[in-house]
Design a protein around this nucleic acid. Structure first.
Lengths: 123, 123
DNA sequence: TCATTCTTCAACCAGATGGTTGACAATGGC
DNA sequence: GCCATTGTCAACCATCTGGTTGAAGAATGA
């Protein structure tokens, strides 16, 4: 179920707090308590966030006495990057082909009507 | 609010149907009706999915008579890729530094006690 | 003008999600 | 052995989400 994992990873990163946790874990491992400190929520809430990240495969936890140091798993990022890159490239190529066609049309004759004028400006 | 957009984009792609829509739009523009065909849900549901994708900036819609052709916006993908790459790399570098330190320790002397033994093997 | 086609809006519903508080499990220091 | 520390589990709550159906909007064609 690659699809499921992809869904879990994207869903996990859709939350700003969880993204921040990932950002901080990228700097170095940390315990649940340490991770919870800067946020204005209970430790339990952060523990839940960590469960979501763990289920997505983004984080793993080990044990050190009472503490449970959290650790970022970099590999899952590749799963996302691959998915994203695939469709980004595909869309990109489609543009380039379209641009080429339009350029050819422009060379050949007067452009009769510019296609989809409002799209380019979007975003 | 870059953060908000990032949240919206990740949330949008957390749904398999929406990821599939993105995949199909990468091949070429399509109307709402056409996009809805293969799925086992109402056209209204797909219209909602498209709203989510549009709000995330992943899709734009133009007009062609009654139809509203949907179009993939490739730029937003960069936002995600940048975010992901940043922390993936950071985590990667951290590993490499740790590996180097461990290697040095191994060269210099008997390792007195390997740091965080359970972490390296995780995943 | 009126019917048709394509799409969205509105209201509703079940289930997921993110937060809370309180109890409990696990471990180490004393 | 006992207590303090650290973290999770359970139950609960408000809100968000993805689906439904029914009605309405927008543009075309007869």
């Amino acid at each position: 179920m690659v699809d499921d994992q992809l869904s879990r990873v994207f869903a996990a990163l859709a939350d700003p707090t969880r993204r921040d946790i990932v950002a901080r874990l990228a700097v170095g491992d940390a315990t649940v308590g340490k991770l919870a400190e800067p946020y204005d929520v209970s430790v339990q809430a952060v523990s839940k966030h960590l469960k979501v990240l763990t289920d997505a495969g983004l984080v793993s936890q080990s044990r050190d006495a009472q503490r449970r140091p959290c650790h970022l798993e970099a590999e899952v990022f590749d799963l996302m990057t691959k998915w994203i890159e695939r469709y980004r490239q595909q869309a990109q190529e489609r543009y380039e082909r379209l641009d080429a066609v339009l350029a050819e049309m422009r060379d050949d004759e007067q452009p009769t009507h510019p296609r989809n004028p409002q799209q380019g400006a979007a975003s």
